[in-house]
Design a protein around this nucleic acid. Sequence first.
DNA 1: AAGTGGTCTAGACCACTAT
DNA 2: TAGTGGTCTAGACCACTTT
Lengths: 249, 249
Amino acid sequence: MNIQTKIYRQASDPAYLQLVNILKSNIGQGVYLPGDRLPSESKLCKQYGVSPMTVRRSINALLDQGIVSTVQGSGTYVKAPDLGGVTFNLDQFHELFRDKERTRVKILEVLINRADDATAKRLKIRVGERTILIRRVLVRDGDPTLYHREHLIYDPHLPSVEAELEVTSLHGLFVGTGESKFKRGDLEIKAAVLSKEEADILNTMPMQPAFRLEHVFYDFNDNPVSWGRFICRGDRLTFTASVGLSGLK
Amino acid sequence: MNIQTKIYRQASDPAYLQLVNILKSNIGQGVYLPGDRLPSESKLCKQYGVSPMTVRRSINALLDQGIVSTVQGSGTYVKAPDLGGVTFNLDQFHELFRDKERTRVKILEVLINRADDATAKRLKIRVGERTILIRRVLVRDGDPTLYHREHLIYDPHLPSVEAELEVTSLHGLFVGTGESKFKRGDLEIKAAVLSKEEADILNTMPMQPAFRLEHVFYDFNDNPVSWGRFICRGDRLTFTASVGLSGLK
DNA sequence: AAGTGGTCTAGACCACTAT
DNA sequence: TAGTGGTCTAGACCACTTT
């Protein structure tokens, strides 16, 4: 449980990372308490025998992790953990696609239809223009887990509907294999309860809590090309995060 | 809509940031497409007249933002946007506390009771040991917005229950004013529907969709000191995030 | 005036990849 | 072997805060 006190140049971890961990350990063990000032960068240079740039890089890492804050001309201070900077991610979604053997994407429906109000608004087209509706369900170990409903702009230049399906292939979307052909997307996570249709598809009861992840994807001209939503049973998904000095020593 | 092509040394933005934005603009406008290799670092040095460390710092920023990936010995490549690395945060929670005039924390109840199974498990104490239950509601513009229910370990060394209340003052928790006295916390977001009690407090109907943010906080010895949950109406909170090249040019 | 963080240089050496 | 990313040095200058 002792704290590392010097930098080992032959270690596999680079010097800046070792220094990050040393400082984090010190903070985690209460050597520096919230509000305390860390030793100045020049002192850290001498103490650990590294150059200013290396110390700077370590401090920047602590800044990014929300562990310290800096005041130019004054010093680097230990922050009290606060929920303001906490971030959550979609790692659990990501894992659904990890091994292809256990996961299967089933296409429920593909059809060409006309944009209603909501679709027209999000895809910035006129009501009644043609769109493509795709309904898919992601099956994990035979268990329907994620229901996806997506509206795509109908592009007559594309050779076929099959080509449209490639635009946001579910797998490419999450694994980033370079298959997805959009430039950026906006996402929204909402709390919801399952409708009858959604509950049937996800093999559970209506009115159960669920997450609804809405997305709009844009092409390289910043025009929307797709919008839709993922529905996931609330009992199959939790978002986790930690704050302050978690993991490590 | 033109892309910046050189670094202005007298600009307020530092060189490395200007280079980040130049590269992001190029990627955003399709100059470099997903899968393409960026110019090598040494070429970027010459092209923009900056030192290797400055280029490196810019590349690292793009790496952190999930926009490129690097392969040692090979090059830096533009990534296709994928949902795997998307993060969202609690900024909306944070804003609730921004101006104290509009926000008020009302304490509904404080009482000393005995740990039940769930509480004993999370606080790592025995069933029946004393704990403190605090129920609070955060009122925004007269509108009950956030319901917090928290179980604290009863510490006979603290002078009073009032002192316990300071341990995780709601305001300090979100704004990070250094009032909170814990070292780290684990958080979980779940989809839920409001119970009768929660709906009454939040001034709406039961069975409405809601977010439940559960937390466990730990002291400097890594012992749990508090667990509880925030409940928020689903129609009052959405988590947003973006993927790929959002904002900017 | 002295100390602090923030940026930057112009090299160096290493590990790795491609040819 | 040549090129690429990854780390690091030993200084420098600036803006800012503290005393």
